[in-house]
Amino acid sequence: MTTADPRTDLCRALQDARESVLWKLDGLTERDVRRPLTPTGTNLLGLVKHLAGVELLYLGWVFDRHCAEPVPWFRPDLGPAGLEPNSDLWATAEESRAYIVDTYRMAWRHADATVAALPLDAVGRVPWWPGQAGAAGLHRVLVHMIAETERHADHADIVRELLDGSVGHRPGAERLPAGDEQWWAQCRDRVAAAAEQC
């Protein structure tokens, strides 16, 4: 559903993606939300932690709107050399699920306040973006943030499927063909057979 107001549509799309990411944690143990299930260590809680920092960065720091609440892993002032590589993509034993989820929700509030306070053509500075010294309008940054969140929602969907077979965008909206376990096994076998013929 779209409205006549692009800001409302953009905010709705971002919120929908945010909620999809958090839904992937539901019903899992502390171990499972932290388990790395890819060779690069992708895990559900790390994706949430990363997205909290990304929201604070793109919809805060880029527009010179700094968050009053300290977030230990969010230090754009240090630059990449000041942080351990990938430190925002996994949770330490001391960082609880509740803490990371609460931090993500706090980042939403901060980001939403930025979007509410500025016109869509407000210009921020994204130094690592090429062209015009990294100048970027809020509209463009919001589109980027939606794409970033959806990208990681897709990662979360795959990680969750690897954990317990759960799939979908949200409860009741799996967006997949209806099929039982046998149907999906046959589907997978057909895909594998086609790959072997190449």
Rank of each mutant, 00 (worst) to 15 (best):
T2S: 13
D5P: 06
D5T: 10
R7N: 12
R7H: 13
A13D: 14
A13M: 10
W23I: 00
L25Q: 00
G27Y: 00
R35K: 03
T38R: 00
T40C: 03
G41E: 00
T42I: 08
L45A: 05
L47G: 11
V48E: 04
L51H: 13
V54R: 07
V54L: 13
L56R: 14
L57H: 14
L57V: 05
L59Q: 06
V62L: 08
V62F: 03
H66C: 03
A68R: 13
E69F: 07
E69R: 15
V71L: 04
P72V: 02
D77C: 03
L78K: 14
G79K: 04
G79L: 10
P80R: 13
G82Y: 07
G82C: 07
T92E: 14
T92N: 12
E95R: 02
R97L: 09
Y104W: 04
M106D: 02
W108E: 05
A111G: 02
A113S: 03
A116S: 06
A116G: 03
A117I: 05
L118N: 02
L120V: 03
L120W: 00
G124D: 05
R125M: 04
R125E: 02
V126A: 11
W129L: 15
G131H: 08
G131P: 06
Q132P: 09
L138G: 08
H139T: 11
V141K: 07
L142S: 06
H144K: 10
M145Q: 14
A147Y: 09
A147N: 14
A147D: 14
E150K: 07
R151M: 11
H152K: 05
D154T: 15
H155N: 04
I158P: 01
E161I: 05
D164P: 07
S166H: 13
S166I: 12
V167H: 11
E174G: 11
E174K: 09
R175W: 12
P177L: 09
A178Y: 15
G179L: 07
E181Q: 12
Q182H: 14
A185R: 15
Q186E: 15
Q186T: 13
D189E: 15
A192C: 10
A194M: 10
